[in-house]
Design a binder for these strands. Structure first.
Lengths: 187, 187
DNA sequence: ACCTGAACACCGTTCAAGT
DNA sequence: ACCTGAACACCGTTCAAGT
């Protein structure tokens, strides 16, 4: 009558936070937002769905951890001209955002999990604009332009072609467009 | 043993396409993307969920019909300067997008339903830029800037404050930012 | 601490049937 | 033509329990 319970295979290593995050990103990048379910992720990890809850609390917690993981290394170089520093920061951000468009959509869907990293990146851009000597209204306006444009470009990338060549084209295009926009900041 | 089947009340008018669309927009604007389910919409209409399927096929069909309905009247004025016509078109688009941020998110989520209206609006902007005499590479670049920025601003609005004052501030802000961007187009 | 199965309250959608 | 209830194959998540 009773079926076996508890951990079945002693030989299987316990799923680590990092393994779950890696598998989650793979699932999201491969199958898109539709395929990204707790149950599908558990299947991929050969694990019970509840294991994931043990590590991340709930789905929002997992998404939050994913964005911390993906955006962690987006930082501005410490030195250089204003132009170069902001261009470098935004390119780095765009690169992460375009590499995982599904994650971008997930974040946009749930206001509750707007990640600390995204907030920090926004703050960094803001600070760079202020350092560049822009008056506060102009700096706020250009912050919006740069951030909103980047997010819009992410959406376009998430909806369109996701082949390698399309991604590298998109990066190139973004950088060129950024240069065009930064002309506006500097006048 | 058998319970009553078929249409129960003769006094209830059949749900029209337009009633369903109106109720769907209300549900989406009030409760956001999370609350927007076929079953919740049916409840609100006091109707069986399957009634909606009869009119729109499936959920994607409903979203598609919603976007046709919401974006239908976004058009550029026939006459005026290039600057005024493009500004008017983009303000109209932004106004619709910001009035129904949940719809914007729904569309972004499903590449399959990128609506004809959105495509048409994009094409209209493109044509205005070409008419303005921009060389094709510059016109493609500015099309991306204007459209992606507008979508990014929509996302920001969808995630943030949705009070009446915040919405009117956002409109004002968008128009001012647009003017700033259009300076870049004209040089 | 880490993982499990069973269960709960939801989804979108298909089906066969009523009027 | 228009609408119905029941059912199917999913969801995220809670619970109580195993090792």
């Amino acid at each position: 009558m009773t079926r076996p319970r508890g951990r079945p295979h002693r030989d299987k290593a316990p799923a680590s936070r990092d393994q779950i995050l890696t598998a989650a990103l793979e699932l999201l990048d491969t199958g898109g937002i539709e395929a990204f379910t707790m149950r599908a992720l558990a299947d991929r990890l050969q694990v019970n769905p509840m294991t994931i809850y043990h590590h991340f609390g709930d789905r929002d917690g997992l998404i939050d951890a994913l964005s911390e993981h993906v955006y962690a290394e987006v930082t501005a170089p410490a030195s250089g001209t204003f132009h170069d520093r902001i261009r470098s920061l935004l390119n780095a951000y765009h690169d992460r955002v375009i590499s995982h468009p599904g994650l971008t959509l997930l974040i946009f869907r749930q206001p509750a999990v707007f990640p600390r990293q995204a907030q920090r990146i926004t703050d960094d851009i803001d600070q760079l604009l202020v350092e560049a000597g822009l008056p506060s209204e102009r700096s706020r306006r250009w912050l919006n332009i740069l951030v909103d444009f980047t997010h819009g470009a992410a959406i376009a990338a998430a909806m369109g072609d996701r082949s390698n060549s399309a991604v590298s084209d998109a990066k190139d295009d973004y950088d060129k467009t950024l240069t065009e926009l930064l002309k506006g900041v500097e006048t």
